[in-house]
Design a binder for these strands. Structure first.
Length: 552
RNA sequence: GGCCCCGUCGUCUAGUCAGGUCUAGGACACCAGGUUUUCAUCCUGGUAACGCGGGUUCGAAUCCCGCCGGGGUCACCA
């Protein structure tokens, strides 16, 4: 097989799901690792649910992850139509589908049906009552010619006449899977509104775009025999299939966008007094959302509400991980390991787990994709992210940290200059596994000096005990601190060390009192950074206030 | 419920296709020590798994069968 063409075909109904991201990643990796092309196609045949904004969001999510596509919607340096097989929005490809419909219609392989949705529901129910699975089949006395005539004036759908034989799907990951004819119904291929169903559009488009390898989630396995049958009827070659194992929540449930609403809904219920106004939506919408598990609040309402209620939203979509402060490289590395692994050992007999895109592209193959579903372990992703953060140059970290904050934490940007963030970087990096955790080690910067409460135990241990007592050491040292110039972490550290040596003090006996004075507790980043980030004036003010508070 | 897929530490997995070198290896998490001016980082060590039952075989995590368990899918959504 030379020059494979893979494709990722999301429906634009929201941000990119993390599972979809993995599929896209593997599609891109396989294509790029085998001198092929990766196509991105937007499946917007569901007019009720699709939106242009969502489509754009998905492109952004992919671009952020660094997953680039060769053919598809133009975005940044991605996409374009150099092979002239576009357009890449299915809603703009109706003429292709109509041509294929006609072909099947002429051959009697597609036929109009006139049952209403209600009638079908009834048929389904009665089948169920008889403990049978409802399978739609063309009636024995079906008259094609008169149906075609009737279709000219009546609303109808088109169904595919399923050939009466079992279908074997050859899958690169699962092997051969046989589906008996009895399980395959005459599926709808054109909806009442004239749009093709997913099954039809995907087959026509994949053929038109030269797709050779269909890589998708295992939830599509049951659809595949239908697609294969359709391909046969249309005279298309059958591509290679590879169905990826599913990704679940840690509790085994399916990772769903609704999980986010679920978390907030529970918090709203627990709080008891949250109003529609608090949520920023209509009364009706809010009431419906509270009752109906399938209703979702818009992202821009849900996120602020979650923040107000102090709920941590589960990350489900790529955008969620981005907001939480994960680095795209970490996300990509982690999800690549969900269901796949390179099977390579490094020194010490350890599995090779950390790698970049180039490595993935060069090594990815279906032979090493597992069959079993995997659970999404945020702790491990977090560890990957943490490692990446720790290993960055402070300057580089400060840059991405600021870029992130500009998007998701405006207050941080207002409080800290780019220079501040650069100085803080070495202190923050080993203490924040994600960018959103970066506030924790420097929380002291965000409290007003006047409101600091001093931890009793710490005060007792470090301020009152000892000979001399910590408070006295601190009082003696304060003037020396005032002399430090410039007030940089290095200069401060040097002065500190100097002073301790001269006075015959242990570092801790001075360091801990300073920490308590500055932050209220005996925990903080290295003193040089802590002091410098606060600034000389503020540092001295806090020390003074602390000393005063202790003597009262 | 029908059909389909799956089943190694808590989690992700190596090992399974070509049965022995597997008293089952790694990673994350967890626990315990150590380094450090606190916290964190870092270093060292530890706990922990072949779902169950039958076969086949000198020998099974690896092959076969059954059971149990988990999941997917049954739309004019994708």
């Amino acid at each position: 097989m030379t020059n494979p063409i893979t494709r990722f075909a999301p429906s634009p109904t929201g941000h990119l799901h993390i599972g979809g991201a993995r599929t896209a990643l593997f599609c891109a990796a396989y294509a790029h690792g085998h001198a092929g092309r990766f196509v991105l196609r937007i499946e917007d045949t569901d007019q009720k649910r699709s939106s242009e904004a969502a489509a754009r969001g998905i492109l952004e999510d992919l671009a952020w992850l660094g997953i680039t596509w060769d053919d598809g919607p133009a975005f940044d340096s991605c996409g374009g139509d150099s092979r002239s097989v576009g357009p890449y929005y299915q809603s703009e490809r109706l003429s292709f589908y109509n041509e294929a419909f006609q072909k099947l219609l002429d051959a009697g392989l597609a036929y109009p049906c006139f049952e209403t949705t209600e009638e079908l529901a009834e048929m389904r129910q009665s089948a169920e009552a008889n403990k049978q699975t409802f399978i739609y089949r063309q009636r024995a006395d079906y008259d094609h010619a008169s149906a075609l005539k009737r279709a000219e004036s009546e609303e109808h759908v088109l169904r595919f006449k399923m050939p009466a034989q079992a279908v074997t799907v050859k899958d690169e990951i699962l092997g051969e899977v046989v589906f008996p004819y009895e399980e395959l119904d005459d599926l709808v291929i054109r909806k009442r509104d004239g749009f093709p169903t997913y099954h039809f559009a995907v087959v026509v488009d994949d053929q038109a775009m030269g797709v050779t390898h269909v890589i998708r989630g295992q939830e599509h396995l049951n659809n595949t025999p239908r697609h294969v049958a359709l391909m046969g009827a249309l005279g298309y070659p059958v591509p290679v299939f590879a169905h990826l194992p599913l990704i679940f929540n840690p509790d085994g449930s399916k990772m769903s966008k609704r999980d986010k609403d679920k978390a907030v809904r529970a918090a709203v219920k627990a709080a008891g007094d949250v109003t529609a106004q608090d949520a920023g939506v209509d009364e009706g919408v809010f009431a419906k959302w509270q009752k109906d598990k399938t209703v979702q609040l818009p992202q821009d309402k849900l996120v602020p509400l979650a923040e107000r209620l102090n709920v941590e939203l589960p990350e489900i979509e790529v955008e969620d991980f981005r907001r939480s402060g994960y680095l795209p490289e970490a996300v990509v590395n982690y999800i690549a390991l969900l269901g796949w692994n390179p099977g390579e050992k490094v020194e010490g007999g350890k599995d090779l787990e950390r790698f970049d895109r180039a490595y993935l592209d060069s090594k990815f193959d279906f032979g090493r994709v597992g069959k079993a579903a995997s659970k999404f372990d945020r702790e491990k992703l977090r560890a990957f992210n943490f490692d990446l953060i720790k290993s960055m140059e402070p300057g580089a970290f400060a840059k991405i940290w600021r870029a992130w904050a500009e998007r998701y934490d405006k207050a941080l940007v207002q409080r800290l200059s780019a220079e501040d963030m650069h100085m803080l970087a070495p202190a923050v990096q080993p203490r924040a596994a994600t960018l959103s955790e970066s506030r924790q080690p420097i929380a002291y910067l965000f409290v007003d000096a006047g409101t600091i409460e001093y931890d009793e135990k710490a005060v007792a241990k470090f301020m009152h005990k000892g000979e001399p007592a910590g408070a006295d050491v601190l009082r003696e040292f304060a003037p020396r601190l005032a002399e430090v110039e410039p007030f940089t972490p290095e200069a401060i550290e040097a002065r500190l060390a100097d002073y301790c040596e001269h006075e015959g003090l242990k570092m801790g006996s001075l360091a801990q009192p300073i920490r308590i004075a500055l932050t209220g507790a005996a925990v903080s980043p290295p003193l040089g950074v802590t002091l410098a980030s606060l600034g000389k004036e503020e540092s001295l003010r806090r020390i003074e206030r602390c000393l005063a508070a202790l003597t009262v």
